[in-house]
């Protein structure tokens, strides 16, 4: 038994948690799995590795059905940030989720790392010519002339098949009635969906929420560089309001009514003729 299997076994046995979310090897694939006291022997099959899933999303579903359940889960840095956000947004009670930290981003002190995101996929030549390279920096994405930026993003969005994969995998997309499925907000019956509205609606909702886990981009079958888009969302929230999403238990800037306005209406953004 590995030490983590042992730890989960003990936690379940002692009743520290009622249910423990982690990964289990099934037919050679590491799949998310809920370990319970009733089937405690399954902890022998618990594995760690590069596979990632938004386990905290399961936790919110379990918590909404069984508000008093004590939930345990393995957590990387991104899971931890998501748990912070879910508490801030009242989807989980503080202390309801107990975590076992697992290996994550590499550092000089700890060169070994386990994350499916550490080997980014290179962009193909069509994407480089017409679309947005998911591996570029925000600064690079900002340097193209506006008209080209627009066309490149629209090219990316036009590939969307409206599968909702980005929303379904996202740990912080928890709304009961999602705007993306509201026929008055997003037209129905055609593909691609209304662009750029479909993607901008989600981008706006991610302000103060997205914890930059990149699962949406991993999940997108159309390879739309969603993480890049939401990185910009996070950068704006940070620049304008000094808020770092997922870093703690403070409310996001959009949920706080300040005593007095600290901003003044912007004149139009300076637009140079390009």
């Amino acid at each position: 038994m590995t030490s983590i299997q042992q730890q989960v076994h003990t936690w379940l046995e002692e009743g520290r948690v009622d249910i423990f979310l982690a990964y289990r090897m099934v037919e050679g694939h590491p799949l998310p799995h809920a370990f319970t006291r009733e089937r405690i022997d399954e902890t022998d099959t618990l594995v760690t590795g590069p596979a990632r899933y938004s386990l905290e999303k399961f936790a919110t579903h379990i918590a909404s059905r069984y508000p008093d359940a004590k939930i345990g889960m393995v957590a990387r840095d991104c899971n931890q940030r998501a748990l912070n956000v879910l508490q801030v947004w009242n989807q989980l009670k503080p202390g309801q989720v107990d975590t076992v930290p697992v290996n994550c981003c590499p550092s000089l002190l700890k060169p070994h790392a386990d994350c499916s995101y550490l080997e980014p996929k290179p962009a193909g030549h069509v994407k480089l010519e017409r679309g947005q390279d998911p591996n570029q920096s925000l600064a690079q994405a900002d340097t193209l002339p506006r008209a080209e930026r627009f066309d490149r993003w629209m090219y990316e969005f036009s590939k969307c098949i409206k599968c909702y994969g980005c929303r379904n995998i996202c740990p912080v997309c928890f709304c009961k009635d999602c705007s993306l499925e509201h026929p008055d907000l997003i037209g129905t019956g055609h593909l691609p969906p209304d662009i750029p509205i479909f993607h901008l609606v989600r981008a706006v909702h991610m302000a103060g929420r997205c914890i930059d886990c990149g699962l949406c981009e991993d999940a997108c079958p159309a390879e739309i560089p969603l993480r890049l888009l939401y990185r910009k969302v996070n950068a704006i929230v940070k620049d304008l309001f000094g808020y770092e999403t997922g870093s703690g238990d403070t409310l996001p800037p959009f949920s706080i009514l300040g005593d007095k306005p600290t901003m003044s209406p912007q004149p139009l953004l300076a637009v140079s003729q390009e």
Binding site: R146, L200, V237, D239
Partner: peptide, 22 residues
């Protein structure tokens, strides 16, 4: 105000600047 300012920046990122005013 916060939302609109945020949106102005986001729209600029995707190449649509100056078309939103509050």
């Amino acid at each position: 105000l916060k939302r609109m300012t945020f949106l102005q920046h986001l729209l600029d990122f995707m190449g649509l600047a100056g078309r939103l005013h509050l």
